[in-house]
C-alpha cells in the first residue's frame, strides 16, 4: 500500500529535484564561504601589497604561490576578497529580499483582498513606481539616504516592493473569490482573520518563489550600486566593487573582473532557478 502511494510521486519528483539541488549546492557553498570567511580566506581581504600588484592566477606564468586567483591593482588577494564579498552579498540579499517581501506582499494582500480605495491607492503607487527606471531610482535613493549598506537595503525594499505587490494582489484577488473564503465568512471569521488564516497560506508558495528571485535581484542591485561607487566604501570587499575595479583595469588584469563575475553569475542563476523551480513545484498544474 505504502509502495503504491509513494512510487509515482517519487518518479515525478526526480527531475525537479535536480533543478532544486544544483542551485542549493551552490548557495550552500557561498553561504559556507560567507560564514567561515576568516578561516577559509588565505589572506586579509584589505591587505595591500604594491610589490604584488596584478599577479595573474595560479595557472598562469608569473603567478605567486598562495594567490590562487591572482591579485588586483593594489596587490589585494582576489580569492580572499571574493570570499569576504560573499558575506556582504548574502547579508544584503537576505535582509533586503525579506524586507521587500514583507512590505510588498502586505500591500498586495491588502489591495487584492479589500479592493476599493486601498486597491486604487496601492495600484496607483505601483504605476508611479513602475515609471521610474529602477537603477536610476536606486542610485537616486542611495544618494538621498547617504551611502552604506543600510541605504542599499532600504533602496532595494523601497523600489522592488512593486514586484511582490503586483503578483500577490492578482493572486489574492483570485483566491478571494473562492468558495472557501465565503465559507470562512459564513462561519463567522472576521475579514482580517480570513485574510491571514485562509488566503495567506494559499498565496505563500508564490511569495516564497518571489522571495528567492528577489534574493538574486538584491545581489545584483548591491553589485550595481558598488559598481557606481554608492554602496559601502570602495575598499570593502564587495563583488560589485571588485567588478568595478576589474572593469577599470581590464586591459592589465582581466582576472580581477572574471572571477567575481563568474561568482555573481552562478549566484544569480541559482537564486532564480530555485525561485522558478519552487514556483513549479508548488503549482498543482505542473505536478
Amino acid at each position: 500500500m505504502a509502495d503504491v502511494l509513494t512510487k509515482p510521486f517519487r518518479r515525478r519528483a526526480t527531475p525537479m529535484n535536480l533543478r532544486l539541488w544544483l542551485p542549493l549546492v551552490w548557495i550552500a557553498v557561498v553561504a559556507a564561504a560567507a560564514l567561515f570567511a576568516p578561516f577559509i580566506a588565505p589572506h586579509d581581504p584589505l591587505a595591500q601589497d604594491l610589490m604584488l600588484e596584478r599577479l595573474p592566477p595560479a595557472f598562469m606564468d608569473g603567478s605567486e604561490p598562495g594567490h590562487w586567483l591572482g591579485t588586483d591593482s593594489l596587490g589585494r588577494d582576489v580569492l580572499s576578497r571574493m570570499i569576504y564579498g560573499a558575506r556582504i552579498a548574502l547579508f544584503v540579499s537576505l535582509i533586503a529580499a525579506t524586507a521587500t517581501c514583507i512590505f510588498g506582499s502586505t500591500l498586495g494582500l491588502i489591495a487584492g483582498f479589500y479592493g476599493g480605495w486601498p486597491d486604487r491607492i496601492i495600484s496607483r503607487l505601483v504605476d508611479i513606481w513602475m515609471a521610474f527606471p529602477p537603477v536610476l531610482f536606486a542610485v537616486l535613493l542611495v544618494a538621498v539616504m547617504g551611502t552604506g549598506l543600510g541605504s542599499v537595503i532600504a533602496a532595494i525594499a523601497l523600489i522592488d516592493w512593486t514586484r511582490f505587490a503586483r503578483v500577490i494582489r492578482a493572486e489574492t484577488m483570485v483566491q478571494a473569490r473562492m468558495d472557501y473564503v465565503d465559507s470562512a465568512r459564513i462561519g463567522g471569521a472576521r475579514r482580517a482573520a480570513t485574510l491571514v488564516s485562509e488566503i495567506l497560506p494559499n498565496v505563500l508558495p508564490s511569495i516564497i518563489a518571489l522571495l528567492m528571485l528577489e534574493m538574486g535581484i538584491a545581489v545584483i542591485v548591491e553589485a550595481i550600486l558598488s559598481f557606481v561607487n554608492l554602496s559601502i566604501s570602495s575598499d570593502d570587499p564587495t563583488w560589485g566593487s571588485m567588478i568595478a575595479e576589474g572593469r577599470g583595469s581590464i586591459h592589465f588584469a582581466w582576472w580581477v573582473l572574471l572571477f567575481p563575475l563568474i561568482t555573481l553569475f552562478l549566484t544569480v542563476l541559482s537564486f532564480s532557478t530555485l525561485g522558478e523551480g519552487l514556483k513549479q513545484h508548488f503549482d498543482p498544474v505542473h505536478k
Binding site: G216, I217, F227, L261, F265, L269
Partner: peptide, 28 residues
C-alpha cells in the same frame, strides 16, 4: 531559461571580457 534570469548588467560584463579583451573586435 538561464539566459533570461541573468540581467543585462552581467551580460554587459561578459561581453566586455569576450569581445573587449579575449577577442577584441568591438569597442568597450
Amino acid at each position: 531559461g538561464a539566459v533570461l534570469s541573468i540581467p543585462d548588467f552581467l551580460w554587459g560584463l561578459v561581453f566586455v571580457l569576450l569581445f573587449g579583451v579575449l577577442w577584441p573586435i568591438l569597442s568597450i
